[in-house]
C-alpha cells in the first residue's frame, strides 16, 4: 500500500515535471527549425514527376497523342515556371551556385556555420546582421560585404545579447521571441 502510494507520487511528479518543465525552467527550448519540402514535393518536383508520368502513360497506351501533346505542353510550362522561380530565388539569395539546384538544407547549414563562426569570433553584441550571411563584424555597415544585401540592424537578442541566426524567431540562448 505504502509502496503503491510512493509509486503513484513518483509517477505524478514525473508527469507534471515533464509537462511543466518548459514553463518552469525555460532553459533550452528547441528553436523551431525550418525544414524544407522534399525535392519531390516542391512545385518543380511535382511538375517533373508529372512529366515523367505523362511519358509513361503514353508508353502504356493510356494517353492519346492529342492528350499527350496537351498535357506535355502544360506541364512543361509548369516545370519551366518552377525552374525560373527557383533561379530567381537563388539570384535573390546572391547564391553563386545558381543553376546548381542548391537545396534549402544546404543553404541553411552554410548560413548557420557562418553565423556561428562570425558570432564566436568577431561579432560584437548588437551588430547588424545579413539575412543570408548572419551577423557581420562591421558595426556600422549598411550592406553585407559578402553578398551585398542590405543588413538588418540589431542581429542580437534583446534579452541576453546573444547573436541571432538568420531568420531566427527565438533566441537560442534564452528562448525569448525575436520581434519581427
Amino acid at each position: 500500500m505504502t509502496l503503491e502510494v510512493i509509486a503513484a507520487v513518483l509517477v505524478g511528479a514525473a508527469a507534471v515535471w515533464l509537462v511543466l518543465q518548459p514553463l518552469i525552467a525555460p532553459g533550452r527550448p528547441s528553436a523551431p527549425v525550418f525544414e524544407p519540402l522534399d525535392p519531390e514535393e516542391t512545385p518543380k518536383g511535382v511538375a517533373l514527376a508529372a512529366l515523367k508520368e505523362i511519358e509513361f502513360d503514353r508508353e502504356t497506351g493510356k494517353l492519346s497523342d492529342e492528350d499527350y501533346a496537351y498535357l506535355k505542353g502544360k506541364y512543361t510550362g509548369v516545370a519551366l515556371e518552377a525552374l525560373r522561380a527557383e533561379s530567381a530565388e537563388q539570384a535573390a539569395r546572391g547564391d553563386s551556385a545558381a543553376g546548381g539546384g542548391l537545396g534549402d538544407v544546404e543553404v541553411m547549414i552554410a548560413a548557420r556555420v557562418r553565423a556561428l563562426r562570425s558570432a564566436a569570433t568577431s561579432a560584437p553584441p548588437g551588430a547588424p546582421s545579413c539575412p543570408t550571411c548572419g551577423p557581420r563584424p562591421e558595426a556600422d555597415a549598411v550592406f553585407c560585404s559578402t553578398c551585398a544585401r542590405r543588413l538588418r540592424q540589431g542581429g542580437a537578442c534583446a534579452g541576453c545579447g546573444a547573436a541571432l541566426g538568420p531568420a531566427s524567431r527565438y533566441c537560442e540562448r534564452c528562448g525569448a521571441g525575436v520581434a519581427a
Partner: peptide, 26 residues
Amino acid sequence: SAAAPEVQASDEELARLQRALDEVDD
C-alpha cells in the same frame, strides 16, 4: 482548351529542364 499550350522558353531553359528531368530517377 484542348489545343496544346505554346511553350515559351529559350533553348538554354529547355536544356536545363532536360537536365532536371534526367536527374529524376524513375
